[in-house]
Measured scan of single mutants.
Amino acid sequence: GSVVKEKKEKALIEVRPYVEYYNELKALVSKISSSVNDLEEAIVVLREEEKKASEPFKTDIRILLDFLES
């Protein structure tokens, strides 16, 4: 629970300088966080969101995924 939350919060802070739609990304992460149990599940849902998103938000999600998977 809290470790996953920390990882996601740290990821958002780390990617902030590189993303165009930070507030939207943060809102998406919050929405996903409330419906998943762990980081792996969150990553799966983020990948689905990435497929549906259009640029440049798609790239923002990709940047976040790269950080979460590192």
Rank of each mutant, 00 (worst) to 15 (best):
G1Y: 00
G1V: 13
G1S: 13
G1D: 13
G1I: 13
G1A: 12
G1K: 08
G1W: 00
G1C: 14
G1N: 13
S2L: 07
S2D: 14
V3C: 15
V3P: 11
V3K: 13
V3H: 12
V3N: 13
V3S: 14
V4P: 07
V4W: 11
V4L: 14
V4I: 12
K5W: 04
K5Y: 03
K5Q: 14
K5D: 14
E6G: 12
E6M: 01
E6V: 08
E6L: 01
K7P: 08
K7R: 12
K7M: 15
K7S: 08
K8W: 15
E9C: 15
E9D: 12
E9K: 04
K10M: 13
K10S: 07
K10N: 08
K10W: 08
K10G: 05
K10I: 14
K10A: 13
K10T: 10
A11V: 09
A11I: 10
A11P: 02
A11N: 03
A11S: 04
L12D: 02
L12C: 08
L12Q: 01
L12H: 02
I13C: 14
I13V: 08
I13G: 06
I13E: 15
I13L: 08
I13S: 13
E14V: 08
E14P: 02
E14Q: 07
E14C: 15
V15N: 03
V15W: 01
R16V: 11
R16K: 15
P17V: 06
Y18K: 15
Y18S: 14
Y18D: 15
V19C: 12
V19Y: 07
V19A: 01
V19F: 06
V19R: 00
E20V: 14
E20S: 10
E20M: 10
E20W: 03
Y21E: 05
Y21V: 02
Y21L: 12
Y21K: 06
Y21A: 10
Y22K: 00
Y22F: 13
Y22L: 04
Y22C: 05
N23P: 04
N23D: 15
N23E: 15
E24I: 04
E24H: 03
L25I: 03
L25Q: 00
L25R: 00
L25K: 00
K26Y: 14
K26P: 01
K26C: 07
K26L: 15
A27Q: 10
A27R: 04
L28S: 01
L28M: 06
L28A: 01
L28K: 01
V29N: 01
V29A: 04
V29W: 15
V29P: 00
V29G: 01
S30I: 12
S30W: 06
S30G: 11
K31W: 07
K31H: 09
K31C: 05
K31N: 12
K31Q: 13
I32D: 03
I32M: 04
I32W: 02
I32T: 04
I32Q: 02
S33T: 14
S33I: 13
S33V: 14
S33K: 03
S33N: 06
S33Y: 11
S33E: 10
S34A: 12
S35T: 12
S35P: 04
S35K: 10
S35F: 13
S35L: 10
S35Q: 13
S35Y: 13
V36L: 06
N37C: 06
N37D: 11
N37G: 08
D38E: 08
D38N: 12
D38L: 11
D38T: 14
L39W: 14
L39Y: 12
L39V: 06
L39K: 03
E40H: 09
E40W: 09
E40R: 09
E40L: 09
E40M: 09
E41L: 07
E41Q: 09
A42E: 08
A42R: 02
A42D: 04
I43D: 01
I43V: 09
I43G: 02
I43R: 03
V44H: 11
V45G: 11
V45T: 07
V45S: 12
L46N: 00
L46T: 01
L46I: 06
L46P: 00
R47T: 07
R47Y: 10
E48V: 07
E48Q: 11
E49P: 00
E49C: 07
E49A: 05
E49M: 03
E49F: 06
E50F: 10
E50I: 08
E50L: 08
K51R: 12
K51C: 11
K51W: 10
K52N: 12
K52C: 08
K52R: 11
K52T: 06
A53P: 00
A53G: 03
S54L: 08
S54N: 10
S54Y: 09
S54W: 09
S54A: 10
S54P: 09
S54V: 09
E55M: 07
E55I: 07
E55T: 04
P56N: 05
P56I: 04
P56V: 04
P56D: 04
P56A: 06
F57H: 03
F57P: 01
F57Q: 03
F57V: 02
K58S: 12
K58P: 01
T59S: 13
T59K: 14
T59Q: 12
D60N: 03
D60T: 04
I61S: 00
I61V: 04
I61W: 01
I61L: 05
I61F: 01
R62N: 10
R62S: 08
R62A: 10
I63V: 07
I63A: 03
I63H: 03
I63T: 08
L64G: 00
L64P: 00
L64V: 03
L64M: 05
L64T: 02
L65C: 11
L65H: 01
L65N: 02
D66K: 10
F67T: 06
F67E: 06
F67Q: 05
F67D: 02
F67I: 06
F67S: 04
L68M: 11
L68C: 12
L68G: 00
L68Y: 04
L68K: 00
L68V: 05
L68N: 00
L68S: 01
E69N: 10
E69S: 11
E69Y: 08
E69A: 11
S70I: 10
S70G: 13
S70P: 09
